[in-house]
Measured scan of single mutants.
Amino acid sequence: MPVRRGHVAPQNTFLDTIIRKFEGQSRKFIIANARVENCAVIYCNDGFCELCGYSRAEVMQRPCTCDFLHGPRTQRRAAAQIAQALLGAEERKVEIAFYRKDGSCFLCLVDVVPVKNEDGAVIMFILNFEVVMEKDMVGSPAHDTNHRGPPTSWLAPGRAKTFRLKLPALLALTARESSVRSGGAGGAGAPGAVVVDVDLTPAAPSSESLALDEVTAMDNHVAGLGPAEERRALVGPGSPPRSAPGQLPSPRAHSLNPDASGSSCSLARTRSRESCASVRRASSADDIEAMRAGVLPPPPRHASTGAMHPLRSGLLNSTSDSDLVRYRTISKIPQITLNFVDLKGDPFLASPTSDREIIAPKIKERTHNVTEKVTQVLSLGADVLPEYKLQAPRIHRWTILHYSPFKAVWDWLILLLVIYTAVFTPYSAAFLLKETEEGPPATECGYACQPLAVVDLIVDIMFIVDILINFRTTYVNANEEVVSHPGRIAVHYFKGWFLIDMVAAIPFDLLI
């Protein structure tokens, strides 16, 4: 008679799926529990143990900040960024110097990925580790590398530091407007667009060049630039800015003055950032001319202004700041037409079709709590990747769950009947059967004279019903998954307890 339990259901295979997918890609990662103190490590794979030199037993239950890997060259700011990422709910990448158990130093890129439950609360953290440099290539500990984003994938490793954006290309926007319009339909740009040429040739750093990471940081200074100062900065030398009595002219307006920039070969870094931020506020060169004239017309309804409409929906549905990093990277690809469009465009503009998908598509409701890094690593669709929660398995109709209350009560009843059979069957065979043979035949009273025979008949009927119930009862397979398919249940029961239950259900007393 089957006594099969499996009270692990309803099970959740999400954690096993993450481990299996990460292991298949030869990654070095740990999984931490966000619900406990210090976000203790609950799993670390073999790749991480080989990377740091510690065994799994030495890593388990330690804080996922990996303070046991810190050393003299470990930056405090990087460690603080990892700790801050564990307090938030967004994906974050941090470069930090770690030390192995043998004392060797290596520069590592740590990717902190939160995993949320159905309520939107962070319950786990996945920390992925990628070695960037070994100890002989690690720089000085005073050099802070965590304020910069990861290198873009479309640049060669040897040319990542030679990417320079020439400031004269930004200063000569109005001069290039006529050349853009003359391109017409034969050019790649839309009317009114501004073409910015980027020099990728390796050259020595000069005062006129600005690194790509500095251009990325310009967006942080746009908020500090007032509207009046932006307007004066875009007017140009024809209309000098008016300053109040006793007030000095704005240095932001002076930063885009061609006369002032041409007199000296070098520009201050602050002026460069502010000038680029001011130019980015204009949607095209037409807006710059309109600002000089004193009238700013409404933005025209053409394809170039609607190019950012799908980007707005993608940004609203993005799951991490990696989408913004990807957008900034692609927006700086050289030799393309940049349409400086305000994100607050007309909502009635139709979304044009684009061959290049900048932001990841909208994630469906079932995966809105899973970050983009987890979705990318697992390579699963929205119909396959579940949320991290207890999910009731989908069972067929008329199927009994093996952990249901009805099955528990039924098993206790069958257990009592088995005990009765084990006690009274030998007793009936030894004593009652002998008395029946010696006594007179009682054929007239039937079952009324033999109450134990009636009980034995009921017990046999219950055993037959138990066999039928076992054909529709779920079970737990070797992978700790609840199986509810009727065919698989029948095959599993035939290979197991079916023969024993059938022999126990045969009414031998009635056959004798």
Rank of each mutant, 00 (worst) to 15 (best):
P352H: 02
Q25S: 10
S26T: 06
R56F: 01
T13V: 14
R148F: 06
G192R: 01
A185I: 06
R35F: 15
I123K: 10
E95K: 12
F48R: 01
M124S: 06
P310F: 09
T367F: 10
S250A: 15
L107V: 15
R326Q: 09
A193P: 05
E58R: 01
I42V: 12
A382K: 12
P249Q: 09
D321G: 12
R273S: 12
S255N: 10
F68L: 01
P141Q: 15
S55I: 01
N339F: 01
G238V: 05
P245Y: 14
H70F: 13
L324F: 14
H221G: 15
F125N: 12
A172F: 01
R4P: 15
W154V: 06
D287G: 08
S140T: 08
L170Y: 08
F163E: 15
N339P: 14
T162A: 06
L311I: 07
E177I: 01
L155W: 15
K93T: 12
F14N: 05
T13G: 13
N257K: 15
A57E: 08
T174K: 14
D16L: 08
R5S: 09
F14V: 12
A228Y: 06
G120T: 06
G262W: 13
G47V: 01
V94S: 04
D286Q: 14
D355V: 14
A204N: 15
R301A: 12
L51G: 01
L380K: 04
P249A: 08
A223M: 06
R27I: 05
L109D: 11
N117K: 13
S283P: 07
N220C: 08
V194D: 01
T337G: 12
V341R: 15
P361L: 05
T74I: 01
G294S: 14
P245G: 11
R27N: 06
E365N: 15
H309T: 07
R92K: 11
A78G: 09
V384L: 05
P310Q: 07
R4T: 09
R73E: 14
V215K: 08
V384G: 04
D286P: 07
P227Q: 06
E365S: 07
G345K: 14
I336C: 15
P10C: 10
V384Q: 08
P63N: 12
T174P: 15
T337I: 05
P258E: 11
P168N: 05
I363Q: 14
I288G: 08
K344F: 06
